[in-house]
Design a protein around this nucleic acid. Structure first.
Length: 889
RNA sequence: GGGAGCAUAGCUCAGUUGGUUUAGAGCAUCUGCCUUACAAGCAGAGGGUCCGCGGUUCGAACCCGUGUGCUCCCACCA
């Protein structure tokens, strides 16, 4: 079969993915093996995979594929998240483009559109996950709004309510005036910008009348909220204002009289030291209001326009009203000055609107008692975080200072809150309308079942995702006699971004500890954030986030996986650069070309010693290959052992680097060159088979990282009865470090001789004779042929004395003389040797200094001292060799 | 304001409880090669005050202190 010049990924990837699916390799069902379970962090159903997902999915696939071939029953559950706010705002946008206003639709009609949208776009992410080669069990695909999942969420709400862990309350929350919904603290993003601080004067009054000519000046960024003022506050220790006790201030424009209050909260050094208190529109003012029992006047509507309570500019948008109010305040002499001021404003992560602090009735989860077991699980090491030291402190701090979780959202897309209201306003919480009605009856509330009204709001998306590791196995909706949850839970490892440690990771641990009395996963692997080359966060608005499918088209999925993994140690941010994908593609070609070489040998094998290389030849060429084979076998064993250890530490990029270098350098550059027969010469059959075997083993260890090309090459190398995808790793024989060291020596000699050839202008084609002066010729005998071939020598001799008119090279304790027809540049050669000698002498000095230090010899471990002595004697031997060589000049 | 982390070659990073031949890799750079697997390649090479200062130690890239610079998280002062 003719192999293409370069590796062509597209068709290969499609072919193998279909084959794996067809063989049901990714499907998991309960059996006797231990389970290795991973649940995918469900991406937003309407989203596309960005580079962050690509990294996450690749990491998970590597771990899952590795587990699958290491005796585990690997189960990777895919799925997606309904992402209430993000999806709803996309659907609203889509409807708007069609000329449909959401407010004209019934809830049912809107949800129909939303599900249609989900069907249409929800498949995109699954397609991308498949393209990347992810070995997920597609039969287990779960969506957070699936029937059983929906029921589970409702069930948990009712259960927590009955346990007193969910309550309804009026609270200051973050309000998104564009999406008209409450946001959790985590959904608010703060941005710094240049604002203005307006100094306004309020006339003072006693309880009867205004005090003419007496004012107090406050500073505010939000003059449009003055109509909501219900007090002016100063610090009790502030002497400037001490005399104002018992007085009132008159709010400009609306002439409302509000009391002056005193509280430590006010910073006398900020602004004027006097603060207007607007409990309805500022979280701190709200708290002050609670403390001093102030009236709450909400001057804004849900959409951010001024409400009737504002009295003026009613119905105008808050920002438009601000401009007009500033003008009016100025005209009427209330505005004393404007000051430039840098402030931080909260923006909705979803809609981008400026968030408005607002009082409203919302549902909350009490976090304190749920947090305790979740904290303990991590602190005790039951759940291990990687990299640990980096995130443990953050996790602890958040859980120790956790605040109640606002879980209601004023949306339609999501699980509707199972709270029911009777016409008289009484409230019950129940899974169904019928149950709610029964409860009302028991409470003697008079109503018909049709009159029962369900809460309009839906639940926060995270209130469904926190059940993910359990409910994908129906552990919540069907907890009794559920073999699946017993077998697959707790899951093995969770791979996710560090940015959702609170949103999701902590809450999953809480839910898991609460409902299963078990951790949801044993290990958490945090990937870093993917940034662009300049270190900027990848984002749509910057346009610096490449399209995954384009990248796969351009480089192939294996190259994308390689590129994203090669430079992403756990928890560290990763600067994404297409150059690393190029490196991945080049690596594919390297593998492909090695395959072409080995395939050339197929059918050109011979047995025994027929291989007549002709040059040096007291040595059996087969014996030479024996060295190469033994060396590589041990090198491979060593690498595999190292790799296992890296896997157990989740140091995957390190592992990939090791395999890359093992294949490119040790296998291709050294081993294949060593066993390569001469031009049009046959290769020994045993050597050929061993080479194929090594190649297969290399493909096997690389397979979790680059599944497609490895499976392809594995099958092209030989007729195979199995597939790499499920071929089990064998146990690793111990590596013989002696032969590995011998190989290192050989490499070192070859490199030194090649270097000497180049420095002395010996052309690659010029043939040389090599003379070796050594105490241990037996070391070189078995590798003579390799050495000769690699340095283009046609003969190797052993000598006990200096050879004149040659290039001298010293390696370790041995000397090598390169004899060629060329004129030797003795001056350059001498300089080279002198440089080496100086280096060695300096080195000897350093070691000597150490050994002459009595305290070192006394205190250091004996093996360290011994090692220093060996270093010294080695250095001295080399100095002797160099000095001898130099004496010939 | 509170907390965490990082600083090693031009760039991105390894360096596993302080000693392992006076610091390693990939990419980039330079030199020479179209050598019958591979120019998306081969063979070589150069390149570092391990951020500054101080300390602990026989010995520090590694431990401690301190300064500087960067990053992230939390809290959100009108």
């Amino acid at each position: 079969m003719e192999l293409s010049k370069n590796y062509l990924p597209a068709a290969t990837e499609e072919k193998w993915y279909q084959h794996w699916l067809h063989q049901k390799y990714f499907n998991s069902s309960i059996d006797d093996r231990p389970a290795y379970t991973v649940v995918i962090p469900p991406p937003n159903v309407t989203g596309v995979l960005h580079m962050g997902h690509t990294l996450n999915e690749t990491v998970q696939d590597i771990l899952v594929r590795k587990a699958r071939v290491s005796g585990f029953n690997a189960c990777w559950v895919p799925g997606s998240d309904h992402a209430s706010i993000a999806t709803e705002s996309k659907v609203v946008q889509m409807l708007k483009e069609k000329g449909i206003d959401k407010s004209t639709l019934s809830r049912e009609a809107f949800l129909e559109y939303a599900f249609e949208w989900k069907e249409k776009y929800g498949g995109i992410i699954y397609h991308q996950i498949a393209k990347l080669g992810c070995s997920v069990d597609w039969d287990r695909t779960t969506f957070t709004m699936d029937d059983h999942y929906y029921k589970a969420v409702i069930k948990v709400f009712v259960d927590l309510y009955n346990k007193g862990l969910i309550y309804r309350g009026a609270r200051m929350i973050n309000w998104d005036p564009a999406a008209k919904t409450a946001l959790s603290d985590e959904e608010v993003e703060y941005k710094e910008l240049q604002g203005k601080l307006y100094h306004l004067r309020y006339q003072l009054a006693n309880d009867i009348e205004p005090l003419s000519g007496q004012y107090i000046t406050i500073a505010t960024q939000r003059p449009e909220t003055i109509m909501g003022d219900t007090a002016i506050c100063v610090n009790p220790s502030d002497e400037r204002y001490a005399h104002l006790k018992g007085l009132f201030a008159i709010v400009p424009l609306i002439n409302k009289k509000v009391p002056l209050i005193f509280d430590e909260y006010v910073d006398p050094t900020f602004g004027t030291g006097a603060l207007k208190v607007t409990p309805a529109h500022d979280i701190n003012d709200y708290n002050l209001g609670l403390k001093h029992q102030l009236e709450v006047v909400d001057t804004l509507n849900a959409d951010g326009t001024l409400s009737a309570a504002a009295q003026i500019y009613v119905g105008e948008d808050r920002f438009a009203a601000r401009k007009k109010i500033i003008i009016e305040l100025n005209e009427k002499g209330y505005l004393l000055k404007e000051e430039e001021y840098t402030t931080r404003l909260g923006y909705s992560q979803r809609s981008g609107a400026v968030v408005e602090p607002r009082i409203s009735t919302q549902w909350f989860v009490k976090m304190k008692e749920m947090a305790e077991p979740a904290l303990k699980a991590v602190v005790d090491g039951d759940v291990k975080i990687h990299p640990g030291d980096k995130f443990l402190a953050t996790y602890k701090y958040w859980l120790e200072n956790v605040k109640d979780w606002c879980i209601s959202r004023q949306l339609w897309w999501g699980q509707q809150i199972p709270a029911w209201y009777a016409p008289d306003g009484s409230l019950v919480v129940a899974e169904t309308r019928e149950e709610a009605f029964d409860q009302f009856k028991m409470q003697n509330v008079q109503c018909s079942i049709e009159e029962v009204i369900q809460d309009e709001d839906v639940l926060d998306t995270w209130f469904s995702s926190w059940l993910w590791p359990m409910e994908v196995f129906k552990g919540i909706s069907n907890p009794e006699d559920n073999k699946e949850i017993e077998y697959y839970y707790p899951t093995s490892v969770l791979v996710t971004g560090q940015d959702i440690i609170f949103f999701w990771v902590a809450r999953m641990i809480m839910a898991g500890m609460h409902y299963n009395h078990q951790k949801p996963f044993s290990d958490v692997y945090f990937t870093g954030m993917v940034r662009d080359k300049q270190g900027r966060k990848m984002s749509k608005s910057l346009g610096n986030s490449p399209d995954l499918l384009d990248l796969i088209d351009k480089y192939g999925a294996d190259a994308v996986r390689f590129g994203i993994m090669i430079s992403s140690p756990a928890g560290n941010d990763l600067l994404f650069d297409e150059a690393s994908l190029e490196q991945g593609r080049n690596f594919n070609n390297k593998l492909w070309n090695a395959l072409k070489l080995v395939k050339m040998w197929q059918g050109r094998t011979s047995t025994g010693i027929a291989n007549e290389s002709g040059n040096t030849s007291q040595i059996n060429p087969n014996e030479t290959s024996q060295f190469a084979i033994q060396w590589f076998q041990n090198r491979l064993n060593k690498a595999r052992t190292d790799l296992e250890s890296l896997y157990s530490q989740f140091r995957l990029s390190e592992g990939l680097k090791n395999i890359y270098s093992l294949i490119w350098d040790d296998f291709c550059s050294w081993y294949l060159e060593w066993v390569k027969p001469g031009f049009e010469q046959p290769i020994d059959n045993a050597v050929y088979e061993k080479t194929v075997f090594f190649f297969e083993e290399l493909m096997q260890i690389l397979h979790p990282f680059m599944p497609f090309i490895t499976e392809e090459i594995y099958h092209l190398l030989a007729e195979q009865k199995d597939d790499l995808c499920v071929k089990q790793f064998t146990s690793i024989p111990a590596a013989d470090s002696g032969i590995i060291e011998e190989g290192e020596l050989l490499k070192q000699v070859i490199t030194a001789l090649r270097d000497a050839r180049i420095k002395n202008q010996v052309k690659p084609k010029d043939v040389i004779q090599l003379h070796i002066q050594t105490q241990q010729p037996e070391v070189y005998k078995p590798i003579e042929n390799i050495l000769a071939k690699q340095v283009n020598a046609n003969a190797i001799f052993y000598t006990n004395e200096t050879i004149a008119n040659t290039i001298v090279v010293a390696v370790e304790k041995d000397k090598f003389y390169i004899e060629s027809e060329l004129q030797i540049d003795t001056a350059a050669l001498k300089a080279e040797l002198l440089k080496d000698l100086e280096h060695q002498q300096n080195f000897r000095e350093a070691v000597n200094k150490k050994l002459n230090n009595e305290r070192f010899v006394l205190n250091a471990k004996p093996e360290v001292v011994d090692f220093e002595r060996k270093k010294l004697s080695d250095a001295e031997a080399r100095i002797k060799v160099l000095t001898e060589s130099l004496s010939n000049f």
